[in-house]
């Protein structure tokens, strides 16, 4: 018993041996990189500035979360910024309409990296009860990447706080070692999300190829129909 324990400790001090899974939570720093990560993430995690950006009903619950009873300030999130340049987190709180998604994408592009998006409420996640409507976007994640989803209609302030804590956990998991989790330290400027166009319906420029294909298909279908129609009348 004591022997195995000693072995275990020896293993633990050995730099090449990874920390066993069950022990990782008890050991704060396992490498220099992790130390940098944890300091960096600690700072970012505790000073997320959300954008004061209300869309619909959920925005009221967001304000309630920011006010004295639920008090986001306890998480370092008290500064609701109206300008996207000063914000880290976009809380998409409410129904996203086709008319509104254009400014939202623009605002998202204007935010400085690292930036995060939290979809609050059923509408922002997937269109919610208004999903079937002609002017409603069925989920903001169809246009911009979303980090945390908070379901509910509307989520209570405590549910939103739970989502924000999830957001903090997500930030905690990011690491310099893993470029995929921090793409903003890659070379060159980050890619902007193309702004949708208000055409006969909302158009996502990323789907231009699909549109062309569908249009061609529609035209050929129409041609086939007229051809068959002519054939029918000929008979």
């Amino acid at each position: 018993m004591t022997n195995s324990n000693e072995n275990f400790l020896k293993e633990l001090h050995h730099p090449d041996v990874p920390v066993p899974e069950g022990m990782q939570s008890a050991v704060a720093v396992t490498s220099f990189g992790k130390l940098i990560d944890s300091i960096y993430n600690w700072g970012r995690r505790n000073s997320i500035w959300p954008m004061a950006f209300g869309l619909a009903c959920c925005a009221i619950e967001m304000i309630a979360t920011a006010s004295s009873r639920f008090d986001q300030a306890r998480f370092g999130m008290e500064v609701l910024r109206a300008s996207p340049r000063q914000a880290d987190l976009m809380i998409v709180s409410g129904t996203v309409t086709k008319k509104m998604v254009v400014p939202i994408v623009r605002l998202y592009n204007q935010m400085a990296e690292p930036k995060y998006v939290l979809a609050m409420g059923a509408c922002a996640i997937g269109g919610g009860p208004f999903k079937e409507g002609y002017n409603v976007v069925s989920g903001i994640d169809k246009y911009i990447p979303v980090d945390v989803y908070v379901p509910g209609c509307p989520p209570t302030p405590q549910a939103l706080l739970h989502g924000l804590i999830m957001m903090q956990k997500k930030i905690d998991g990011q690491s310099f070692g893993n470029r995929n989790s921090m793409p903003w330290y890659g070379r060159g400027p980050s890619e902007e999300v193309p702004v949708p166009v208000l055409g006969p319906d909302i158009v996502d420029p990323r789907q231009a190829y699909l549109l062309r294909r569908e249009a061609a298909a529609a035209i050929s279908a129409a041609e086939a129909e007229t051809a068959s129609g002519e054939a029918d009348s000929g008979v």
Partner: peptide, 13 residues
């Protein structure tokens, strides 16, 4: 139970 926040909606929702 209102604590349902998730990182992924396609599989979980």
């Amino acid at each position: 139970d209102y604590e349902l926040a998730s990182y992924d909606r396609t599989s979980a929702h």
